[in-house]
Design a protein around this nucleic acid. Structure first.
Length: 351
DNA sequence: AAATCGGGGTC
DNA sequence: GACCCAGATTT
């Protein structure tokens, strides 16, 4: 079975090339690493443009390490899961400062870097250094759950381990890098989540799900919980051609991005005049302001939250008295230096 | 083990 | 709308 799987998979791979900018005949570990971090939980079609921008702006790990946090976050804007960007930057600095700018060339060495977990350690160690570690990503879990008839939830850690072992068995006696590339491509292009191409699938003759009419029932996934509704009232303070942005800090969404100061509430209802003025006073030390306009509510769905955002604009009638370390007063021009969440970037572009 | 972290494409 | 993506990290 293992022999059939690998032989068939690799033949399909030869017949169906999928050019990827970072997968060249002479792979650069920096390029492989960069691509793997960017592609975590991201479709190739979405992430490739970001990869090209990063590798163009930061051609080497040294150039990435010397960049500012704001530069990195700005380039990452729109890609989501921003902890990836901060860990990418942290790892780059670590490699330059402590590893003489050389990437670890083992699975364990890579795993120790921030932002690199089991999948990325397997991917980078195999693609860049030819190490024998089978990758297990969403594609591989789905494909093997169907092919081998894995009935337990692919979200369980024990199932993940089981699939990892099956993949390792299938990988025997073939090039690790080619096998890993092939199995992910196959999962993405043939054994798709919805409407997989079973009629054209070369593995179908030995596929448990196909033979037992369970293709739509596998893989089994754990039901996810409902979204948390949140209501953000962004307060946009305008003063002499500039407006205030604030860097978001840890333990919430959009860490490291910049947003107008926001007042969170339990409903879509606009906060009271009193509460808004008190909030502004806490920010700039006075509330000598004049309301300009308020937007309607904009809804943005995240993986675990539903954000209902509203923008309330004020003009300052006196200069700000107080400030905070996270504040930046930006103009239309300088605002582009800072990474912002989608709904904030769109509001500023439209305003 | 479960929760958390974005945004976009696809059906 | 629901699902899911070259997952990792924290709780």
């Amino acid at each position: 079975m293992a022999n059939f799987f690998a032989r068939t998979l690799l033949k399909w791979h030869r017949d169906n090339p999928r050019p990827l900018p970072w997968a060249t005949t002479n792979p650069d570990p920096y390029h492989i690493w960069l691509s793997e971090i960017i592609m975590q939980q991201t479709r190739i079609e979405q992430g490739t443009a970001y990869y090209l921008r990063f590798v163009n702006k930061f051609p080497t790990v040294d150039s990435l390490a010397s960049a500012s946090t704001d530069q990195v976050m700005r380039l990452w804007q729109g890609l989501g899961y921003y902890t990836r960007a901060r860990n990418l930057h942290k790892a780059a600095k670590h490699i330059v400062e402590n590893l003489d700018s050389n990437f670890p060339d083992t699975y364990e060495g890579l795993l120790a870097l921030p932002g690199i977990g089991p999948y990325s350690a397997a991917a980078i160690s195999s693609f860049a250094f030819g190490r024998r570690h089978a990758v297990v990503d969403g594609n591989v879990k789905r494909l093997i759950a169907r092919f081998s008839g894995v009935r337990s939830s692919i979200d369980d850690a024990s199932t993940h381990l089981q699939i990892q072992q099956i993949a390792s068995t299938f990988m025997t006696d073939v090039s690790t890098a080619v096998f890993n590339q092939a199995i992910m491509n196959f999962g993405a292009l043939v054994c798709k989540p919805k409407s997989p191409l079973c009629a054209a699938c070369p593995l179908a003759t030995h596929c448990f799900a196909f033979q037992n009419n369970l293709v739509d029932a596998l893989p089994v996934r754990t039901k996810k919980k409902d979204l948390r509704e949140r209501y953000f009232h962004f307060v946009v303070l305008h003063y002499r051609g500039k407006f205030l942005l604030q860097r978001r800090v840890e333990k919430d969404i959009w860490h490291g991005l910049y947003v107008p100061p926001l007042l969170e509430s339990k409903s879509t209802r606009i906060p009271s005049h009193t509460r808004l003025h008190s909030f502004v006073h806490g920010l700039i030390g006075h509330d000598d302001i004049e309301g300009i306009e308020s937007s309607s509510t904009i809804r943005q769905l995240l993986s675990h939250q539903s954000i209902n955002g509203r923008f309330i604009h004020y003009k300052l009638l006196a200069p700000p008295i107080t400030s905070f370390e996270t504040f930046v007063w930006v103009s239309k021009k300088t605002m582009n230096q800072y990474g912002k969440p989608k709904m904030v970037a769109e509001m500023l572009n439209d305003y």
